[in-house]
Computed example of a mutant assay.
Amino acid sequence: MADALRFYTHPSSRGRIVRWMLEETGAPYQTTLLAFGPEMKAPSYRTINPMGKVPTIVHGDTVVTECAAICAYLATAFPAAGLAPVSTQAWGPYFRWLFFASGPLEQAVTNRSLGFEVPEDRQRMAGYGSFGDAMNALEGAVTGKRYLVEDRFSAADVYVGSQIGWGLQFGSIDKRPAFETYWNGLKDRPAAVRARDIDDALAQPPPRK
């Protein structure tokens, strides 16, 4: 697609996931940085993303928010990058793990980080059941695998890998060997390194004059 691609982000946000995905596609894009607080919550930006959060992409007339959705969209919009499954049999696990990570896993990690534990007799009310359930499911998904789907790198690895890498860095997920092995196989991809370098540079305070 020849439509212009604009990326709204902040270097200390989940936009880092989308930056990596954009670098994997190889598609040209323009970045608009938004500061947390009034700038991100401004009415002008809320017309694009009503949540007043980043990341968001605008591709021609198409607006996409939510990291997993953006990753899935970009994989479909730029098929030459080979970031979506090839066989129809692979679409199931591809979407399964993308949205497991964006739903049950993120809910479990966020609640644990906020000090909230679902009471055992109420776990059926939570989509993730318990933190341990979510960790065990994630471990089963990555154990013995270089990539999640078809033994080839995909958008699912960008998103799930980012969640694992972030969790290992900040201690918000269990430090299990399967997680470390999987993340170590992804984190030095050229696109991941480029994206990390870009956002790290943007996160640095401007030099004093």
Rank of each mutant, 00 (worst) to 15 (best):
W183V: 04
T88N: 13
D188M: 06
A141P: 02
G167V: 03
L33C: 06
T143G: 07
A203L: 14
R19V: 00
D200G: 13
Y147C: 13
N184A: 15
A80W: 01
R196S: 13
R194G: 07
F36L: 10
Y94N: 11
V193W: 06
D200A: 15
G60W: 09
A77K: 13
P11C: 05
W166S: 12
L5Y: 02
I173R: 05
P190I: 05
D200H: 11
G82W: 04
K41H: 09
R208V: 11
S87G: 15
K209N: 09
A42D: 14
T181G: 03
G60A: 10
T32H: 14
Q123Y: 00
V109T: 14
M40A: 14
V160A: 07
P50K: 10
R96P: 01
Y45S: 09
F99R: 01
A178V: 06
D199I: 08
D197Q: 14
P190C: 07
G37N: 09
T65E: 01
D197V: 10
W97E: 07
R6W: 00
A81K: 13
A68N: 08
P119D: 02
F78K: 12
T181K: 15
L5R: 06
V149E: 00
A80Q: 15
K145F: 05
A77E: 11
F153H: 09
Y29A: 08
V158C: 02
F7C: 08
V142A: 11
C71Q: 04
T65W: 01
A2D: 07
D121A: 14
P190V: 06
Y73V: 05
G167I: 03
D151M: 00
L5T: 04
L202E: 09
A141W: 01
F153R: 06
A80K: 12
A4N: 11
D188P: 01
L202Q: 13
P38W: 04
H59Y: 08
E120Y: 00
T62L: 15
F153I: 04
F170P: 05
V142N: 08
A4W: 00
A42E: 01
G132V: 05
G103A: 12
G26M: 00
M51T: 12
L186A: 10
A191W: 04
P43F: 04
F95T: 06
V118R: 05
